[in-house]
Each structure stands twice: as structure tokens, then as C-alpha cells.
Design a protein around this nucleic acid. Structure first.
Lengths: 222, 222
DNA sequence: ATAAATCTGTTGAAATTTCAACGAAACGAG
DNA sequence: CTCGTTTCGTTGAAATTTCAACAGATTTAT
């Protein structure tokens, strides 16, 4: 476990908890670590939520499929991020999304019941843990607002610009990277991939944007 | 306060707390009650979140406007519902949405700091309150998933059907009401109002649906 | 009850998106 | 390095959405 301490300390779930206590707590919580290869399913749609996941290394996407097989990417999961906590905390019986590794991953899984119901040993850190979890849930709530704000735009161009302006603001620079390839970006924005490519080209031709793969730069903000 | 007890007891925030304790707690929390007329702003976009709201009577909508003035309705708030808790718990400084009364409302406001930071009197109910708040946040998180699932469909028809099928399932009947007028439904689905009206008419002509104002009935599920 | 305001359904034209198909470029495995 | 695979940008046609405008229905205010 100790080899993951550096990552775990950056995880919002463990904010304000000392190294010693963190390690003891993980044992107490029954935390386990599992590896997933690229494209493997970490949490599967339709199953019952029980575990909270913590990404230790690699990347995964939260993905939703509709009847017709259209894929929608809801979020990107990077090291130190936690995931699945909403379904676990709400005790959902039929999770409507999957979490899929987009590159090889190491994931820590913690049974949510162990967090919510203070253990018989009554470690005092549980209070802090619960508090951290609440702040995380609230923050994710707000992130969904952002996704909805972006995808509620009516045209591909507006969605793309709204998304890129958010990322630029987030990284505090006109020059920035995004964590999606074209198809994943199209899925996130809920638009057609080819139409998205066309729109990116158009913005470049218009001198508003410069783009090389996942790297973008605003030349003139619109 | 006592006249609101019946509503408050149905509020998920106070689940598992006895009447006596609830009334004592409200005093301790400094809860206050405010009235809003139709169309009045309860929480304004751009301000700092501090209070959690509890709807006592009336209805409100969570609304978001983009640069160009397009309105998006994110959720409907009915009596017993709580709102604003995500921003208050995350201590957001610039709330990106407004809450607007869609009919005259009575609202209870509680300073979120009073909930999160156990008071000096150290009433024991705070633990339960915090637990309830967490479950609420997790549940709302899942509701956003649903909105995203619906609006990620590509056509007006698919969005409308996805929405109506959710509502039918929710109310456990093929005959059901929705809490939106046409414009609000169009805003929720992120589509054009006239196109939505046209699609509703079309579904009725096709014998799939029957519709009278806010009341819908599936004759043949698609 | 009446007038004013709001909501709703319809239409057709214009704008936009989706879809399918293709070749070029980038990537990965052996 | 080369082959096979995946990603990417482009295109034009078909499908869909948006927009603007209007009239009938419904609701609200006086």
C-alpha cells in the first residue's frame, strides 16, 4: 500500500488525514487494489453499486450507451480521482453507466458501506472521511452542471467553443491540452465526429484556433 | 415553524429525526422562512452560495442562461425538495445557475455552515443531518445522469420519447402528468419549442401517444 | 365579463447536423 | 521496417432542427 501513498494523499477523499492514519485506515476499510488493461470494464452498467473507486494510475472514462448503441462519454477519470461514489452512496441497484479503462489502470476499491458506517474499531478519521466524501459529491454535482451547460448549446460550433473556453480557463492559458481524442470529444459534446472535425478545421481556417492533435490554442478568442 | 412540520418531515434532509428534535434543531440552525412571488429569483446566478433551500409550498425551476440568452431548465423544485445544497457544500463562490419561482413559494433557508460545522451546543442530530445531506447529494448526482441520458439523444423525437418513458416509469403508469409547459419542456430537452410541438402532434397522429396539455398517455409504447 | 397577455400548434424556408464513404495520416505489433 | 488497424479530415446528399411569423386557445388581470 505504501507505494501508492503519494497518489492517495492527493486524493480529495483523504484530505486532512496523516500518512500513518491513512495507512491504518486503508486496512480497516478493507481497501484492495486491482489492475485493468485498456478497454476493460471497471464498473459495469446494470450492476449494483457497492464500491468506491480511486484511480491510482492510468485513465478511464465514464460511459453511457443508449438503446441504439450511441456512446456518450460523461467524464474522464485520472489518477487521484475517485469514481462510483454517487451510486455507492445512494445505494443504487442498477447503475446506468459503465467505467471503462482508456489505458491500463491501477484502481483502489473500497466498500462504501465501510466508509458510511463507522467501524467497530471506531477510528476517529471516519468523520473526516465522510466530510471529504460530501465535498466531493457536491463538487461532482457542479461538474455535471458544466457538462450540461456545454451540451445545451445548439450547434456543434457553440458546443466546441464553450468546451474549449472552459478548458482554457481551467488551465489558465490560451494554449492547452484536452483529454479526449476526436471521437471521445464528439461523444462528450453529443455531436457527430465528422461534423466536429469539420468545425475544428473551420475555426482554424478562420484564424480563431490553432490545433495539433489534442493540443489547442486560441489565437483570437471569439 | 410548527405549521411547516408536516412538509419538513417529508424532506429527505430530516429523515430519521423526531418532531421534537426537528423543531429544536431548526432554532439551533437559525432556519428562516421567506416568501417569493411567481417569477422571483430565490438564488441568483453569479452570487456566492451560503444557504440550503427547502421548498415548503409552490414550485421553482433551476435555470441556466448562456451568453446568448438561451434558457435551459435543469430541474423542477417542488415542496419537500431541497436545493442549492451542492453549491453550499462545495462552498462555490460563483453559482452558475439561478433558482426562479414558477409559482408563489414559501422557502426555508438554512445556513449551510451551521449544518456542516457541528454547533457548540453539540446536538446529536447533526450526524443524522450530515448523513442525510450526503445521500441527497448522491441522489441528485444520479438525476443529472438522467438529464444527460435524455438530452444526449440526437433528435427531438428521441429526446421526447426518452423523457416521457422516464416519467411513465417513474409514475408507474402509461398515463401520467409532466411538470412542464411546452416551453419549459423544450428548454429541459434542449430543443426548439415549435419543433417539439410538431413532434408531439406527430406522435399523436401516429397513435403512439395521447396528449392533453400536461397530461400524456402512451397508447403503444415504441 | 372583457381585454390583454401568454401559450400552443402550424407552416415553409434556411441553417445545421447526421450519415456513409473514402483516402491520408498516425500508431502498434511483430 | 512493414503490414494491419485505428484515427482523422473531407465531401455531398439526406434528414433534422431552427427560425420567424401567425392565428387560435387558454389564462390572467381588472
Amino acid at each position: 500500500m505504501e507505494k501508492y501513498l503519494k497518489i492517495l494523499k492527493k486524493c480529495s477523499l483523504f484530505y486532512g488525514i496523516s500518512d500513518d492514519n491513512l495507512l491504518k485506515m486503508l486496512t480497516c476499510l478493507g481497501a484492495k487494489i486491482i489492475n485493468f488493461d485498456k478497454k476493460y470494464t471497471i464498473f459495469a452498467e446494470g450492476t449494483t453499486a457497492k464500491y468506491i473507486g480511486i484511480m491510482l494510475s492510468g485513465t478511464a472514462h465514464t460511459v453511457q450507451m443508449d438503446y441504439f448503441g450511441n456512446r456518450s462519454v460523461l467524464s474522464v477519470i485520472k489518477p487521484t480521482h475517485i469514481f462510483g461514489e454517487a451510486f455507492a452512496c445512494a445505494e443504487a441497484e442498477n447503475v446506468p453507466v459503465s467505467v471503462i479503462a482508456s489505458e491500463p489502470c491501477e484502481v483502489m476499491l473500497i466498500d462504501c458501506g465501510h466508509i458510511l458506517h463507522t467501524c467497530s474499531n471506531n477510528c476517529g478519521f471516519h468523520q473526516q472521511l465522510i466530510f471529504n466524501l460530501m465535498k466531493d459529491l457536491a463538487t461532482k454535482n457542479i461538474m455535471f452542471h458544466q457538462k450540461i451547460e456545454i451540451t445545451s448549446k445548439r450547434t456543434t460550433r457553440e458546443k466546441l467553443l464553450a468546451y474549449l473556453l472552459f478548458r482554457a480557463k481551467e488551465q489558465g492559458a490560451d494554449s492547452f491540452d484536452i483529454p479526449f481524442d476526436r471521437q471521445a470529444l464528439a461523444d462528450y459534446l453529443e455531436v457527430d465526429r465528422s461534423g466536429l472535425s469539420a468545425e475544428i478545421s473551420k475555426l482554424c481556417r478562420e484564424g480563431i484556433l490553432e490545433c495539433r492533435k489534442n493540443h489547442f490554442e486560441f489565437l483570437n478568442k471569439p
